[in-house]
């Protein structure tokens, strides 16, 4: 199980930047003057909110993946003395 936990860590590490890139591509497509539906104030508001909020969260999942890869989740602490 610990091997699985660590290998999955690689997926979480990659998921962070992948979701950021996907978000930026989507935002660029919708905010482009050539977009299928011309961007409105609401379009800008939506993408500003989404990118500002979710970029740090995406970094967080990469950090969790790094911890997993390092084996930090192999054994969870059983009480606070381990924290």
């Amino acid at each position: 199980m610990n091997v699985i936990k660590r290998y999955f860590g690689i997926i979480w590490i990659l998921l962070g930047p992948a979701s950021i890139i996907y978000g930026i591509i989507q935002a660029a497509a919708e905010l482009s003057p050539n977009a299928k539906t011309p961007p409105t104030q609401e379009t800008y508001t939506f993408w500003i909110i989404i990118l500002i909020i979710f970029i740090p969260i995406a970094a967080g999942i990469s950090l969790m993946g790094y911890y997993a890869l390092q084996g930090d989740y192999d054994r969870l602490p059983k009480d606070s003395s381990a924290l």
């Binding site: 979480w12 967080g60 999942i61 950090l63 969790m64 911890y67 930090d72 989740y73 969870l76 924290l83």
Partner: peptide, 14 residues
């Protein structure tokens, strides 16, 4: 900032 706590914060979230 303490890694042992932070890893649990991230696990609780995700």
């Amino acid at each position: 900032t303490k890694r042992v706590n932070m890893k649990m914060v991230l696990l609780a979230l995700f």
